[in-house]
Amino acid sequence: MTLSELLYALLGTALSLMVFSYLLGDNLFFGIAMYILVGMTAGYAAAVLITKVILPMLINPLAELPATSALLGLVPLLLSILLIWMFFKKSARISGIALGFLGGVLAAFAVVGVTRGTLTPQLLSIVDAFDPALMTQAGYPNWMNIFSAFLMLFGVLAVLFVFHHREKFQTLSSGSQTWLDGLTGAGQVFIGITFGALFVGLFSSGLTALIFSVSQIIDFIKLWL
């Protein structure tokens, strides 16, 4: 083991122990470990942004002025100046233009992303399960697939109606309320099952990380013993 490897191992062990000290209650060591993480990620991000985005994408193209590409580069430069202005003068109303631009672009991408990436594929997969080819197997009904398709349709609708917004002063005995309550109850069962499964999945990955961290600490201690 080289000296730098040894130092890194020592540092890693110390930091892990500082994080685990949270179990004894919130303390100085845990706070220090948290701020090291914040400082490091900020420092790394700042270095990456300056060397990989700001210099090559914003500053360097300006050397080619008055070429069209460089002229187009003046737009983000102007928006960036507006943002930097906000740093010096907190009341800079004009900085809102840069932030508004960013918010608008993100909203547009999100609308398309949500529709094409989530809604359509999810809806199509529900309907595709009703393909007649999947419903039979060697000329006989495939009961498992038939049951799965109908359960999926029912379950998804039930989950959707759990979040059906209700009027503020709705009477509890109305007929429409009864079927909605039934559907909502079934939907909650499906949500509970999903949350339970997700929880266990997350717990398993956390447990793997815990085992890895603890084994790193034990390995380091063994090194000295």
């Binding site: 809806l123 529900i126 309907v127 595709d128 009703f130 393909d131 007649p132 419903m135 398709a149 349709l153 998804v156 609708l157 959707l160 109606f161 979040f163 059906h164 917004h165």
Partner: peptide
């Protein structure tokens, strides 16, 4: 109101699409 209306529309659409697919 938008989400309630669209939910009903979506449910009807899904039921119809499933029937047509089947």
């Amino acid at each position: 109101r938008v989400l309630n209306l669209f939910r009903i529309l979506l449910a009807a659409g899904l039921l119809l699409a499933a029937f047509l697919k089947l």
